[in-house]
Amino acid sequence: MTESVVTDHTKQETISADQNRVELCEKNPAEDFLRMDRIPHIWCPGCGIGTSVNAFVRALIEAKVDRSKLCVVSGIGCSGRVSGYLNVDAFHTTHGRAIPFATGLKLANPELTVVVYSGDGDLSAIGGNHLVHAARRNIDIKVVCVNNFIYSMTGGQAAPTTPMGTIASTAPYGFCEYALNLPHFVEACGATYIARWTTFHVRQLQKSMQESFAKKGFTFIEVIAPCPTLYGRRNQYRQGVDEMKMFKEVSRREKDIETRDAEIKPGEKIVIGKFVDRERETWLESMQHHYKEVLGDAYYPYTGAMI
């Protein structure tokens, strides 16, 4: 009977000739990218944010992203807590301002891979203006927007993404505004890559995240996630898993889908998939090309942080 140990970067494998099989050891592959001294996290049972983080970490591993150059920037809210659980350079900024913070970070050191990981209210309401202009400028940042249809951290108030007619703490008789169709919105603004998945579609979500790391420019992935505590319970989904089942049931991935068809209405299908994958010069590239052309030798490109 022989025993040997094989290790790779994510998992430790013990090969037992006796059992003629390989078994993984105790460690979850995600742990390497998490601040394990902060786990368990603050998210409620059945919350989908953790699931999206799981897909994100797996995408980081698969895409072999250089971790030392990876920064994750979050705003405020439940999803805003994501950055704090990731064991990378993590920035938990102010409400709605993750994108302009990330813009400063990326432009001041273009070698960094900058991810903005935040919620629907944070990115599209209070931070809506920044979402518009970062996409328009094509700043090279990867945005992951967890959409749970509600402001969850503050107690379930209606958000721009709350589907019309559903109940929120500030819409006790039902919300009577049109919901923002996020993929359509960021497409109009100029994002180079746009996808939407629910937390039921973890594999596809992970694949989209991997693709976005390989993509230059402003990418946007919307993750529809359950919030049983503050959205689900008020809207017939008692537990996270009930909302997940609904996602499974009503999600539709169709051929040649367009973002304008991606509006979310209660009781109707949720359009998922990759909507946009296109090339545009990033802000930095466009600036560099332009100045080279206009200023010639007088142009002195930015060489990164000065000290």
Partner: peptide, 21 residues
């Protein structure tokens, strides 16, 4: 590892046995 991919709390993961000769 579908369970591992779904788990919001990093509490479970699946792994495959691999033949070894």
């Amino acid at each position: 590892d579908q369970c591992g991919a779904f788990c919001p709390d990093f509490a479970i993961f699946g792994y495959r046995y691999k033949s070894h000769t």
